[in-house]
Simulated scan of single mutants.
Amino acid sequence: MTIHNLEDQNSVLNQFISEIRDSKIQKDSMRFRRNIERIGEVLGYEFSKELSYSSKNVETPLGSKSMHLSKDQVVICSILRAGLPLHQGLLNYFDAAENAFISAYRKHENNEDDFEVVVDYFATPSLEGKILVLTDPMLATGRTLENVLMGLKDYGTPKQIHIVSVIGAIAGIDYIKDIFPANTHLWIATIDPELNARGYIMPGIGDAGNLAYGQKL
């Protein structure tokens, strides 16, 4: 797996990350969603550099210009519900992308620290020969992405897989390295050092789904 950690180089991305972390600013759910969306746009721009391109003549009012345009068919697959703002950020840049959605959540029995990842819902086009982009804003343990990958196996073999994430933990990244194909790319805005006892990223941001859309029962 090739890891592209955008934190390695300072950019305007730092501002968006600081605001989703800030315990005061993140209380504004609309701003939180928009910051996640903007992070998705930045990650999408960086990810686009790895696509395949071919020349095409574009006619202008005054002549023609040869342009290099992507020839890959992209499928953006997001994990409900926290992945929706990140999904929209990518969709802002990939107009012709197909879309897939998966419901995956942690199930804690009796509110204990141990949990299993439950996948309830799939909606996806064929993935055969396409560029699969998996979006998961919080790459914590990596078990959600593992379950999603297993669930997508019946929908075709992608040409390549790209994972787009906002914040990841070292343990989760190490875990998915052994799960995904070797030519997978991970595009991530920042990496945190550890997980707490319940598998949440530290220092992280808290629960991304709750911050974006409110508390769940």
Rank of each mutant, 00 (worst) to 15 (best):
E59W: 02
K56G: 00
E59L: 12
K56M: 13
F47S: 11
P61A: 03
I39H: 04
R31N: 04
N57I: 14
E46A: 10
K49L: 12
R31H: 03
V58F: 15
E50H: 12
E59N: 09
Y45P: 02
F32K: 01
V58L: 15
G44T: 02
N35M: 08
F47E: 12
R38L: 14
L51W: 04
K56A: 11
K49A: 10
S55E: 15
N57Y: 13
E41A: 09
Y53G: 00
E46I: 00
E37G: 08
L43V: 06
R31S: 07
V42F: 15
R33F: 11
T60N: 05
E59Q: 13
S54R: 07
F47K: 04
E59M: 09
F32V: 06
R34D: 14
S55C: 01
E59P: 01
Y45E: 09
S55A: 14
R38H: 11
R31V: 11
N57K: 12
M30Q: 12
N57C: 01
E59F: 09
P61H: 06
R38F: 14
N57T: 13
L51I: 03
T60Y: 10
V42Q: 03
S52C: 07
F32W: 10
E37M: 10
E46H: 14
K56W: 10
T60I: 14
E50L: 08
E37H: 12
Y45I: 06
S54Q: 13
G40V: 06
I36A: 05
E41N: 10
P61K: 05
S48P: 11
E46Q: 13
E59I: 15
E50T: 12
N57W: 14
I39A: 02
N35W: 12
L51M: 12
V58H: 05
G40W: 10
N57H: 09
R33S: 05
R33P: 09
R31I: 09
F32G: 03
F47L: 15
P61L: 09
E46R: 03
F32Y: 13
I39Y: 08
T60A: 07
S48V: 02
S52M: 07
G40Y: 08
K49E: 11
E46C: 08
K49V: 00
E41G: 07
S54A: 13
N35Q: 03
E41T: 05
N57R: 04
V42M: 09
M30R: 00
R33W: 06
K49N: 10
M30T: 11
F47M: 15
E41M: 15
R31P: 00
K49S: 13
P61T: 05
T60S: 11
G44I: 01
T60M: 10
S48T: 03
K49C: 01
S48G: 03
I39Q: 02
G44Q: 06
I36H: 04
E41I: 08
Y45Q: 04
R33M: 08
F32A: 07
M30N: 10
N57P: 00
